[in-house]
Amino acid sequence: MKQLLLLITCLLSLTVSSQSKSKTIHVFVALCDNVNQGIVPVPAKLGNGQDIKGNLYWSALYGVKTHFKNSKDWTLVSSKKDIGNHILERVLFKHKTTNTYLLADAYDGKYIKQTTIDFLEASAGRNPIAITHKEQTLQFGGDAQLVSYIGHDGLMEFNVQGNFKPINDKKRDAIILACISKDYFKPYLKQTKANPLVWTTGLMAPEAYTLKWAIDGWILNETDAQISERAAKAYHQYQKCGLKGAKRLLVSGY
């Protein structure tokens, strides 16, 4: 009996240890929307903010879901549609060689303002989300170590209000891939006290290769400068914009 109890205790200890070592990322995607966002219109299929199929920032070739699904480094664990709160689809990915999980939410493009608020509140440590996978409880929302916003920079057109005061002093990194995100998100991120790991100084295409390359460095615990350089290299590789220009565009810190 003592040996059995000892074995159970060891197994429980290993489970807790495994959970504590997991790293989590939560990506908030505002679907591209020709009608409801102040963007230069894209082809109708790419810019239907109420349809995840073919949307530029979700199911297109370089959309978040498609790009990570096609990646050799990530495995799609689950996909759920119409989960509420204006989220049309939620996908969970696991990194193939580390205990890192990525949760991505596709928001109806009409509700870009709510997407922005939800991202900022998460960057303040609020609205935690717990998801169970293989007897492991994974923490997302405000409990994720890295949060990201992908899409049009709606702050060019509106201001937002929310619970942006940090709930604790835990370090949370933030990646904001949207046009001129450093200027427009800075006042809010200073409130949430999240670390601006990568954001932008000019116009850009917020496609998933930039996010993926930045996350590659984050998983390896690289410095902020190394991670932002990875993002710049990705952007140059896909956009052919020149590496110097990409480095000026994608930066870290205030």
Rank of each mutant, 00 (worst) to 15 (best):
P206Y: 11
A130L: 12
R230G: 05
F93M: 04
L220C: 04
T66H: 11
D143W: 10
D224S: 14
M204G: 01
L146A: 09
D169I: 04
H26K: 09
N70C: 05
A178C: 06
A124T: 04
Q37R: 02
K170H: 13
P43F: 09
L56Y: 13
E135H: 08
I117Y: 07
V35Y: 08
T201L: 07
G217M: 07
E135N: 12
L243H: 10
A174K: 02
A194G: 04
S252W: 13
A60K: 00
W74Q: 03
L146K: 09
S228R: 05
N36M: 01
S71D: 08
D224N: 15
H236D: 15
H152R: 03
D143G: 05
L220M: 14
G109N: 00
V198C: 06
L92V: 08
L31T: 01
K96N: 15
L250A: 05
I52Q: 01
D143M: 12
K193V: 01
T223E: 06
Q145V: 10
L138W: 06
Y209P: 05
H67D: 13
Q237V: 06
L203A: 14
S22P: 05
A130K: 13
W213T: 12
I25K: 08
I227D: 06
N127A: 12
K233E: 14
P166V: 05
Q145C: 07
G109V: 00
Y235P: 00
D51V: 09
L249I: 01
D51H: 04
L92R: 00
N70W: 01
H133P: 00
A246I: 01
V42Q: 11
R90S: 15
